[in-house]
Amino acid sequence: MFEARLIQGSLLKKLVDAIKELCTEVNWDISNSGINMQSMDGSHVCLVAFNLRADGFDHFRCDRPLTLGINLGNLAKILKCSGSNDIITMKADDNGDTLTLMFESEKQDRITDVDLKLMSIESEHLGIPDQDYSAETSMPSSEYQRIVRDLSSIGDTVNISATKEGIKFSAMGDIGTANITLRQTSSADKEEENVKIEMKEPVLLTFALRYLNNFAKATPLSSTVQVFLTKDLPVQVNYNIQDLGYVKYYLAPKIEE
């Protein structure tokens, strides 16, 4: 028996909206420590992983580990039936073939329950070693969103370089070129509005903007985003979901043939 009650149900909706375009059919691994998912996109270019900790839920029960095969598009359709202030409860039996979602309004005067059919999904799991990053940047998630959106109107790929000057995003296309440089700041009113750059060594990597733009769909989940760059390795883009967990994206770089 699995049962989890999330007071801030809108977080679940935002999470599914943040990943559904990259991964359509995924396994959620449920254990008494929480809910985990890891899935590559169809072209095996990027990977999405999330963790929702059991202690982030108002109530969490999992008698034995379960794997729930979920079509995220269908789950997103169901979550559209929930109100933005609804409390969401998820339930599944140990050998069941459905996930029950219950939406309770704030005043608990309206209750919706929906059964989502589960699927059997063959999934591949990647082992991601702990990495020693060349450069780690923390910035407002709205800033990241704006950079990748703005550069998408210039070109399809972006060069990201971290130097002692700051972190520079450069795009080149038929209409011209654009560079956006972020410098470290410390003067913002709120800590999360600052740009922090921790650089161990200069690094330059090239990525497809389409994917970086897709990662920005997680912006509503967190006010900040961390971008980890490592020489010759995939970029990691992390959104921490306050008091609940995280969603992380990994994207393989483009390389010269």
Binding site: H44, G127, A252
Partner: peptide, 14 residues
């Protein structure tokens, strides 16, 4: 022009 690499080039399938 650079080509897109895939993740299996970096991470092992478990």
């Amino acid at each position: 022009t650079p080509v897109q690499n895939n993740l299996e080039e970096y991470y092992a399938l478990l």
